[in-house]
Amino acid sequence: MTPATTPKVVLITGASSGIGEATAKLLAERGHHVVLGARRTERLEEIAEAIRAAGGSAEHHPLDVTEAEQARTFVEASHRRHGRVDVLVNNAGVMPLSKLEALRINEWNRMIDVNLRGVLHGIAAALPVMRAQGHGQFVNVASIGAHQVSPTAAVYCATKYAVWAVSEGLRQEVGGDIRVTTVCPGVTESELAESIADPVGREEMRTFRSVAIPASSIGAAIAFAIDQPADVDVSEIIVRPTASHA
């Protein structure tokens, strides 16, 4: 893979598996320094060690994106160590699908806390740093669900549409020095479906995921957005299987 023109310090949330892990490995391969954040610290250590063994540069920190203070510590620790934060990839997400009539309120709240508040906490932590240094980029991972809704996915899609809306608002507010990219994956290989406890939602997702692309395909899209010249802002990328109807 062609090395990045300018190596950057890239922070990635939800980096212990799926899109986060694949993105970290791909960006490190391109010469960026990656900072991995997630709750599963043992898994983060394995990924960071694998990146370093392959010649890349990586570190990791424990992070629960639902806690604003942890998000702030995650960003500030990287800023102190490297003197800058070039990119924050807000990737952490959960997807416990169910029909609304199942009344899984705790799962609704969990999706709101992780998928939406987690992104807002990341923005709140990194935006002052990027403002002060005069540059930066947010890459917010939404979903194809930000553009279309399916049964069992009403709350999930609502959180992802909210991520899209927050990203667009942020882009309009900070345009000039700070770039904002929304990446909307279609069906992608990941652990997201494992959080589905509702039997109807689980069956719906089993059918939906019959065609899926590897998480590295989303990582490649993120790498593309990051590696554009400073005056080019890739506002949104939708990446889905060629054979997908959704």
Rank of each mutant, 00 (worst) to 15 (best):
R104P: 04
I105E: 12
W108H: 15
N109H: 12
N109G: 13
N109D: 14
R110Q: 12
R110W: 10
I112W: 06
V114N: 01
N115G: 02
L116P: 01
R117D: 14
G118K: 00
L120R: 08
L120Y: 09
H121F: 07
G122L: 04
G122A: 06
I123Q: 01
I123S: 02
A126T: 07
L127C: 12
L127M: 10
P128V: 07
V129R: 06
A132K: 08
A132R: 15
Q133V: 09
Q133D: 06
G134A: 12
H135K: 14
H135Y: 07
G136L: 00
Q137T: 07
Q137G: 09
F138V: 11
V139H: 05
I144D: 06
I144W: 11
A146L: 13
A146N: 11
Q148D: 08
Q148Y: 14
S150E: 12
S150I: 15
P151T: 15
P151N: 13
T152H: 01
V155W: 00
Y156P: 09
Y156W: 13
C157H: 05
C157G: 11
A158V: 01
A158K: 01
A158H: 01
T159N: 03
K160H: 03
W164A: 14
W164L: 09
A165W: 04
V166Y: 04
S167E: 03
S167N: 04
S167M: 03
G169Y: 02
G169A: 02
R171E: 08
R171T: 08
Q172C: 14
E173R: 15
E173W: 10
E173C: 11
G176W: 09
G176Y: 11
G176E: 08
I178V: 08
I178W: 02
R179N: 13
R179V: 09
V183T: 05
C184T: 11
P185Y: 05
G186E: 02
G186Y: 01
V187F: 12
T188W: 00
S190A: 10
E191C: 09
E191Q: 10
E191M: 12
A193T: 15
E194K: 10
V200W: 05
V200D: 14
R202C: 05
R202Q: 09
R202V: 04
E203L: 07
E204S: 15
